[in-house]
Design a protein around this nucleic acid. Structure first.
Lengths: 206, 206
DNA sequence: TAGATTGTTAATCGATTAACAATC
DNA sequence: TAGATTGTTAATCGATTAACAATC
């Protein structure tokens, strides 16, 4: 066995490291250390080194990490050394904002299909893409081989749509709907419910 | 010492439990068990019981938890047995969507102020609120006593705006900008960068 | 009552940190 | 070289799970 299972919690930190590294690169820096990177992202230097060491030896004693090289390696590790097509379902305000979001382009993703079930929205053009009828969603996603979807429908519809996405072959769902989804093994969900984010902080406010 | 420090990781799960309980309540259920709730949210029954036991004894042997009662208790624990005013900064597509989002109303939050620095947006009315000039943000938030903000500005402006928010007395920031923020102790940040969410899943896709 | 389920304890498991030899 | 910083090991710390007496 050449590679034992990497803990999920380590995987979940890698995108944060990558984001920080690209920020540093944007500032013209060539090199960083586990110390500096850790301070930037709020993680101990030891943890940075431990996390990265799961995948190889990317640094040099005495000098630290070459930023461009580490970015390249992290892109490969996280499988974003390519462009993933993403389908967006639900063209309400949030779906709209996501469809027009400019931040995906240089981070490994491309919004490739938009869906809604509302006849008033079907056919609408958003950022060069025409909103398609959800009724054609499953075959369309299947045929395009899309594996990632962003779910922006109301909570009441979210589980049913998620089921369809799974049926269409989607393996990763970014869920904006305020509801826990049940999906089969092998399908991943990340949650972005803004109320949950807020409620995680109010405990600490008097 | 009557109450030792509750781990952050437990606090972070409570909103998920609450959301599931409200879902069950909406389905007309009166009672649930740690088993059932755990299955719904993807957490072990033992963990549900352990988490809740940090705050009191809310269940009954043999019958489980009264849903309405547990919801009430969780609301109190999480300090959302009130309505928190929230300021939204940055009225791009995302800020717009957030300002118009209907999901905060019954979850303890109210969007109370909107800000942007773009003259083209200042004065615009969104959902009954007029977009104010960011230049007046610090005194306005201070005077209103707002403690929670949602940050929807571009990454390049996010840290500077966060500094202003801190200066204005904000203690909790929900950050949509794709950048790690540095804030003083006592200020909390939750991150909702969609690319991070997607990148946390691509590792598992071949 | 009998069955179900809690709250809690102890055991296990996993993640983080501290420390340091290796080495650039 | 001397100073800095890595990758890794062992120790510590914390979180999760299993099990069960208590009891509704």
């Amino acid at each position: 066995m050449t590679q034992s299972k990497i803990p999920d919690i380590i995987i979940s930190r890698l995108p944060i490291y990558l984001r920080a590294l690209r920020h540093m690169q944007g500032q013209g820096k060539q090199t960083t250390s586990s110390q500096e990177l850790g301070e930037w992202v709020g993680v101990s230097a030891a943890q940075i080194r431990k996390d990265l060491s799961q995948f190889g030896e990317f640094g040099k004693q005495g000098t630290g990490y070459n930023i461009a090289f580490l970015i390249k390696k992290l892109n490969e590790i996280m499988h974003i050394d390519r462009v993933w097509d993403v389908a967006v379902v639900g063209m309400g305000d949030m779906g709209h904002a996501i469809a027009r979001y400019q931040g995906f382009a240089d981070r490994g993703f491309r919004v490739a299909m938009l869906f809604d079930s509302d006849p008033a929205k079907i056919g609408e053009e958003i950022d060069g893409f025409v909103v398609r009828d959800s009724a054609q969603m499953v075959p369309a996603i299947q045929q395009a081989g899309i594996r990632i979807a962003m779910l922006c429908v109301p909570a009441s519809a979210a589980q049913a749509v998620a089921n369809q996405l799974v049926q269409a072959g989607v393996k990763a769902i970014l869920n904006y709907a305020p509801i826990s989804l049940t999906v089969p093994p092998g399908v991943r969900v990340q949650y972005l419910d803004p109320s949950i984010g807020l409620q995680r902080m109010t405990y600490y406010l008097e």
